[in-house]
Design a protein around this nucleic acid. Structure first.
Lengths: 232, 232
DNA sequence: TATGATTTAAATCTTTAGATTGATAAAATC
DNA sequence: GATTTTATCAATCTAAAGATTTAAATCATA
């Protein structure tokens, strides 16, 4: 399939040195792959990425010194277009979600078949993403769960709809941390007018102060922005 | 494969009546499916869901009166465990993302093969999610893009790390809209102590007032919550 | 044990925020 | 054309927020 293409340069990072050897042998059988490095250290791995600029990094997320997710972030920050395939012993949805969130191109379990690993590598090298069906389901379950509360509340009555367009402008400036003077200056109106608007906003949103108003705005999709219940 | 199982009840919603007939015929060929309804109206579709409680709804997202996404949300709100497969003429990442966000179990293009449609239906009936490889890539590109800004900023210096644990508690209560008195009461300390903490928080976060402090906290992953740049 | 960081607290002062009342003019709606 | 809504502004007042200084007790740790 890829026989005549340039060999893909691969870097392996896995804290288990036996497993590291296993993958290494397996990949060496594939004539299209060229292993440029294999290490049990996340930090060394990052340096090897800088040095050899592999097309793809196969990264274990259970590393001793530095956790794999952090290593992924640091590799992503290099801006080298290095594709990262996560190799993990856990099918924890949160772990899958976070890995994909920070830029991984795929996530496979250590229990997978060697054929599946090769398939995953090829898909990712072709510019696609790869998640096995079971992990994909876990990902989407978690993904949808994290938005469920939002979907429910967005259907309820949103007090923001009662605001006039001018009040929305004022609230927008409140959500940017402005005080009365700042808002008055930006809207070219007097401070007392701003106070009037702000007081009307409080009434309509049924809150007591600006902080609560800002929180209500952010939690209710103000300005087409929403808060996702997603752990960092 | 599913020959001996109970027939899956399917509802079709598509504004194009010709396309509706086409899918209907195609699905009727499958002995395992039972079409309980087919309509060009989103509102009628929702009522048919209530009436027949199909296992799966194949939903076009380009509907005239009510848009498909809204219809999906209303069906989800019924809490009937109805699985929804989106059928769309567009591979727009935002559309795919929003459909999956609000609970769709799959998304396929109208240009797909009939075999792929049947495969998608079977996967979803089996409790899985289904996105064709190309759409999956679009989804994840969009998904990662929406978190890119956050990933970048989270790597920068986060002033929140300078807060003491007590200051974090105070800030947490600030992000819930409490005033001095409320915080003092909840932490069983005096109001003046709270003022001291809050002032120290302002210094450390380099802000001037509580609203700005709250905004900084929310925008910098305070309390394992992050703000996703995702359009509603 | 000496040192620095944390948590607690009070006193004082200035500034800002918020509530309330009243008023005018333009714009939209009926 | 009358009425309601919206946007504007002022004045006044109270309450809350924020800045600053000082200080004592606790706690971790070098």
């Amino acid at each position: 399939m890829r026989e005549f293409k340039k060999k893909a340069r691969i870097l392996l990072v896995d804290d288990n040195s036996e497993h590291l050897r296993g993958i290494k042998e397996l990949i060496t059988l594939e004539t299209n792959y060229d292993i440029v490095g294999a290490t049990t250290s996340a930090n060394i791995g990052i340096n090897l990425v800088k040095k050899y600029r592999p097309e793809i990094v196969i990264m274990d997320v259970n590393l001793p010194e530095k956790d794999g997710l952090q290593a992924i972030q640091e590799i992503e920050k290099l801006g080298l277009d290095t594709k990262i395939l996560v190799l993990s012993g856990y099918d924890d949805p949160d772990l899958i979600f976070r890995a994909m969130k920070i830029g991984a191109k795929g996530y496979v379990l250590k229990t997978m078949s060697s054929a599946q690993l090769v398939y995953a590598i090829d898909e990712i090298l072709a510019g696609k993403f790869y998640l096995p069906s079971a992990l994909s389901s876990r990902f989407f379950d978690y993904f949808q769960q994290s938005f469920r509360e939002e979907n429910e509340t967005s259907a309820e009555e949103n007090l923001l709809t009662y605001l006039t367009s001018r009040e929305e402008e004022v609230l927008e400036l409140l959500t940017q941390g402005n005080n009365y003077k700042g808002i008055a200056g930006k809207l070219f109106i007097s401070e007392t007018t701003v106070k009037t608007h702000v007081n009307n906003i409080f009434q309509k949103l049924q809150v007591n102060d600006r902080t609560q108003a800002v929180l209500y705005a952010l939690n209710n999709g103000f300005g087409k922005r929403v808060r996702a219940k997603i752990s960092a």
